[in-house]
Design a binder for these strands. Structure first.
Lengths: 230, 230
DNA sequence: CAAAAATAATAGTAATACTATTAATACTGC
DNA sequence: GCAGTATTAATAGTATTACTATTATTTTTG
C-alpha cells in the first residue's frame, strides 16, 4: 500500500486549486499545516491568516494556491476520497467472492485510520477526523449545484461508483445500490461522530468492530431481503 | 393533528433563547422570517442584520431574543424535532403491531412536508428544507460537547428514544437500536439532499415512495436478520 | 398615570475574507 | 553568470460580519 501510493499521485480536480499545492514545498506545507489547524480549530475558526502565521508566510501567499478556505477544504476532502478509493481497490483486488469484496470494503471504509498508514505530507489520521466533522459542510451549501457541475465532487462519486459495482455484483436486481452506497459512507461518519460526542444516540463504542458489524449486517441484510421487497 | 398542536405548545430548551420568541409578536415574526431567510440565503449568508432589515427592526433587537445565529438555528431545528416527535406519536398511537408502528413512523419521518400541514407562524415545509440542508452544521462544531451537556439537543434525543422503543418492540435482541434510529433520521436528510443536488449518487427520485421504500426495507431487513448475526 | 419593560436608532469595535501593490528572492534558459 | 520570469514576502486597505453599548422612544402593566 505505502509503496504503491508512493509512486502513484492522488489526482485532485484542478478546478479546486489555483496552483497545485503538490508542486512546491510551500504548497505541501500549506496542506500539511492546514490539516492540523482545521482539526485543531474547527473549520469555522480556521482562517488563512492563522494558517499563514503557522507556516510563517503572509496570508496573501496562500491565496496563490487556493481561492478561499472552502476550496481548500474541498481539496482535502477530495484527497481523502481518492485515497480511500485506492484502499478499497486494493482491499478487493483478487477477491473473487462479491460478498467478501463488500465486507473488505466496509472494513476499509469504517476502520479508524492509524498513524502508521501515513505517507508523504498528508496525515491521514487527522484528515479522517476532518472528513468526519467537516465534510458535509463542503456540500451542504447554496453553491452545491454549480460546484457539482464543475466536477468538485468527482473523487467522491468515483468511490460511490466502485461500491455500487460491488453491491450490484452481489445482488443485480437490488434497485437502490447508489442509495445504499452513499448511505454507508455518510452514516459511517455520523456514527463515528456520535460515538464520541453524542453517545446516547448510538450504540457503537470506540472500537471499530461494533460499527463495522452494524454496517455489514445492515448491508448484507438489505441485499438478501431487498430484492424480494422492492 | 392541527387542532392538537394548536393547543399544545412545542417545548424548546430555554437555554437556546434569551427571551422566548413565542412570547411576543415580534418574537414570532423573528422565527417566521428567519425560516424564510435562512432557506433563501443559506445559513452562512444569513445574518441578523439582514433579518433585522426584513422585519423592519434593528439588529440589536434580535439579540434580545437570541444570543447569536447559531442558537437561532438550534432553536428552529429543535422546534422541528419536537414537531416531528408529535407526528410520530400520533402516527403510532393505537397501532398495536410494532412493525406497523415502525412503518408509520418511517413514513412520517420521510414524507416531504406539504404546506397544508402548517399551523401558527412556523412554515414547516420550509423548515424541513432548512433541517435537511443545515441541521448537521448545528452539531458538527467544536462546541458540541458543551452544548450537548447543556441540553441543546434534547428534542432530537427524545425522538430517537421514541424510535428506539419501537425498534426494540419488534426485535428486543437487536443490539443497535440507537445506531439504527439515528442512521434512519440522518440518512433521510442526506438522501433527500442528494436526490435534488447530486442525483448520481442516489437512486431516489422526487417522489417520497422511493425513499420510504428504501428506509422500510433497510430497517425491516436488519431487524429480521440482525439478531442472528450480531 | 407612573414605572418598568421592550423596542428603535445609532454608533462603535475587532475580526474576517478578501484584493492590491510593491519589494525581495529564487529559479530557468541561454 | 546573467537577464528575465515566476514566486514569495511585506504591507496596506476594504467591505462585511458578529457582535456590544448607549440613548431615545414607545408600549405594556400594575
Amino acid at each position: 500500500m505505502r509503496e504503491l501510493l508512493g509512486s502513484l499521485k492522488i489526482q485532485i480536480p484542478e478546478q479546486l486549486y489555483v496552483k497545485d499545492p503538490d508542486s512546491s514545498d510551500l504548497g505541501r506545507k500549506i496542506i500539511e499545516t492546514s490539516i492540523i489547524l482545521i482539526e485543531d480549530l474547527g473549520f469555522e475558526s480556521f482562517t488563512f491568516k492563522k494558517l499563514g502565521t503557522a507556516i510563517g508566510s503572509p496570508e496573501s501567499t496562500i491565496y496563490r494556491y487556493f481561492e478561499n478556505k472552502h476550496k481548500l477544504l474541498l481539496y482535502l476532502i477530495s484527497w481523502y476520497w481518492a485515497w480511500l478509493e485506492y484502499k478499497v481497490a486494493f482491499a478487493t483486488a483478487n477477491v473473487n467472492n462479491c460478498e467478501d469484496q463488500l465486507k473488505n470494503s466496509i472494513r476499509v471504509i469504517c476502520e479508524t485510520v492509524t498513524q502508521d498508514q501515513n505517507f508523504s505530507h498528508v496525515n491521514e489520521e487527522v484528515l479522517q477526523r476532518i472528513v468526519i466533522s467537516e465534510s458535509s459542510k463542503a456540500f451542504l451549501t447554496k453553491e452545491i449545484d454549480a460546484e457539482n457541475k464543475n466536477g468538485y465532487f468527482k473523487n467522491y462519486k468515483n468511490l460511490i461508483e466502485r461500491l455500487v459495482r460491488i453491491i450490484s455484483g452481489i445482488s443485480s436486481d437490488f434497485e437502490q445500490p447508489r442509495t445504499l452506497a452513499s448511505t454507508l459512507l455518510e452514516a459511517n461518519h455520523l456514527q463515528k461522530f456520535f460515538g464520541v460526542h453524542m453517545p446516547s444516540i448510538t450504540d457503537i463504542d470506540m472500537k471499530d468492530e461494533n460499527l463495522i458489524n452494524f454496517m455489514e449486517t445492515l448491508t448484507l441484510s438489505i441485499l438478501q431481503n431487498g430484492a424480494k421487497r422492492s
